[in-house]
Lab assay of single mutants.
Amino acid sequence: VTTYKLVINGKTLKGETTTKAVDAETAEKAFKQYANDNGVDGVWTYDDATKTFTVTE
């Protein structure tokens, strides 16, 4: 299990959150659900070296 980070650069929501997941794909699903629940819809990137997803509106 690895800790992944999400950086949110939204129009109305900015911040960070983390999740523990077995792989990046599982973390991405959780983060996309989180973003959707919070009304954030943007461009996604992922940096494997830092295990960090970024979504920018």
Rank of each mutant, 00 (worst) to 15 (best):
V1K: 11
V1E: 15
V1T: 15
V1F: 11
V1I: 13
V1G: 09
V1Q: 15
T2S: 13
T2E: 12
T2W: 09
T2F: 12
T2Y: 14
T3Y: 09
T3Q: 10
T3S: 09
T3N: 08
T3A: 06
T3C: 10
T3R: 06
T3L: 13
T3H: 07
Y4V: 01
Y4N: 00
K5S: 06
K5F: 14
K5G: 03
K5R: 12
K5W: 11
K5A: 05
K5N: 06
K5Q: 05
L6F: 06
L6E: 00
L6G: 01
L6K: 00
V7Y: 07
V7H: 05
V7P: 00
V7A: 04
V7S: 04
I8R: 01
I8Q: 02
I8S: 03
I8N: 01
I8W: 07
I8M: 08
I8H: 03
I8C: 04
N9Y: 12
N9M: 11
N9T: 07
N9S: 09
N9C: 09
N9G: 04
G10I: 14
G10E: 03
G10K: 05
G10F: 13
G10P: 03
G10H: 06
G10R: 04
K11E: 08
K11R: 13
K11L: 14
T12F: 14
T12C: 13
T12M: 11
T12E: 11
T12P: 04
T12S: 13
T12N: 13
T12Q: 14
L13Y: 14
L13T: 12
L13R: 08
L13G: 09
L13K: 10
K14Y: 12
K14R: 12
K14M: 09
K14Q: 12
K14V: 09
K14P: 06
K14E: 06
G15S: 15
G15F: 15
G15R: 10
G15W: 15
G15K: 13
G15N: 09
G15Q: 15
G15H: 13
E16M: 13
E16N: 08
E16K: 07
E16A: 07
E16G: 10
E16W: 13
T17C: 11
T17L: 14
T17H: 15
T17S: 10
T17I: 14
T18K: 07
T18G: 03
T18E: 12
T18I: 11
T18F: 13
T18V: 08
T18L: 09
T18R: 06
T19Q: 06
T19N: 05
T19F: 14
T19R: 06
T19E: 05
T19I: 14
T19P: 01
T19L: 14
K20M: 15
K20I: 15
K20F: 14
K20T: 15
K20L: 15
K20R: 10
K20P: 07
K20D: 12
K20E: 15
K20W: 12
K20Q: 15
A21S: 06
A21F: 06
A21Y: 04
A21W: 03
A21Q: 05
A21V: 04
V22D: 08
V22C: 08
V22E: 14
V22W: 12
V22F: 13
V22S: 13
D23I: 03
D23T: 07
D23S: 10
D23W: 04
D23E: 04
A24P: 12
A24G: 04
A24Q: 14
A24C: 08
E25S: 13
E25I: 14
E25K: 13
E25F: 11
E25W: 13
T26H: 10
T26F: 05
T26A: 13
T26S: 14
T26Q: 13
T26P: 02
T26M: 13
A27V: 03
A27S: 02
A27T: 01
A27Y: 00
A27P: 01
E28F: 15
E28N: 05
E28C: 12
E28H: 12
E28V: 08
E28I: 11
E28R: 14
E28G: 09
E28A: 12
K29P: 02
K29Q: 09
K29Y: 06
K29H: 08
K29V: 09
K29A: 11
K29S: 09
K29M: 09
K29T: 08
K29D: 05
K29F: 07
A30H: 15
A30P: 02
A30M: 14
A30T: 15
A30C: 09
F31A: 02
F31R: 00
F31L: 06
F31N: 00
K32M: 08
K32H: 09
K32E: 03
K32I: 09
K32W: 06
K32A: 05
K32P: 00
K32N: 04
Q33S: 09
Q33K: 13
Q33T: 08
Q33V: 09
Y34T: 03
Y34P: 00
Y34A: 03
Y34V: 05
Y34E: 02
A35G: 03
A35R: 01
A35I: 07
A35W: 03
A35D: 01
A35V: 10
A35T: 08
N36Q: 14
N36R: 14
N36M: 15
N36Y: 14
N36F: 13
N36T: 14
D37A: 15
D37E: 15
D37M: 13
D37Q: 11
D37T: 10
D37R: 09
D37H: 10
D37W: 07
N38R: 15
N38K: 13
N38V: 14
N38W: 14
N38E: 06
G39V: 03
G39N: 15
G39D: 07
G39T: 04
G39Q: 09
V40C: 04
V40G: 02
V40N: 03
V40D: 02
V40R: 02
V40E: 02
D41N: 15
D41A: 12
D41P: 04
D41W: 12
G42V: 02
G42H: 02
G42W: 07
G42R: 01
V43M: 09
V43R: 06
V43Y: 09
V43Q: 08
W44G: 00
W44F: 04
W44V: 02
W44P: 00
W44Q: 01
W44Y: 02
W44H: 00
W44T: 01
T45F: 07
T45I: 08
T45M: 10
T45W: 08
T45R: 07
T45V: 09
T45P: 00
T45E: 12
T45G: 06
Y46I: 02
Y46P: 00
Y46C: 01
Y46S: 01
Y46K: 01
D47S: 06
D47A: 04
D47Q: 04
D47F: 04
D47R: 03
D47G: 02
D48K: 08
D48M: 08
D48C: 05
D48S: 11
D48E: 14
D48N: 08
D48L: 06
D48F: 08
A49G: 08
A49C: 06
A49R: 08
A49N: 11
A49Q: 09
A49S: 12
A49F: 11
T50N: 07
T50R: 05
T50D: 05
T50V: 06
T50P: 02
T50Y: 05
K51P: 00
K51W: 05
K51A: 05
K51F: 12
K51T: 04
K51V: 04
T52C: 06
T52E: 03
F53C: 00
F53V: 01
F53R: 00
F53S: 00
F53L: 01
F53A: 00
F53P: 00
F53E: 00
T54D: 03
T54F: 05
T54H: 07
T54I: 07
T54K: 04
T54M: 09
T54V: 06
T54P: 00
V55A: 03
V55W: 02
V55H: 01
V55M: 04
V55I: 11
V55L: 10
V55Q: 01
T56I: 07
T56L: 06
T56N: 07
T56M: 07
T56Y: 10
T56D: 10
E57P: 08
E57K: 04
E57N: 05
E57H: 06
E57Q: 10
E57L: 10
E57G: 05
E57W: 09
E57R: 04
E57C: 05
E57D: 08
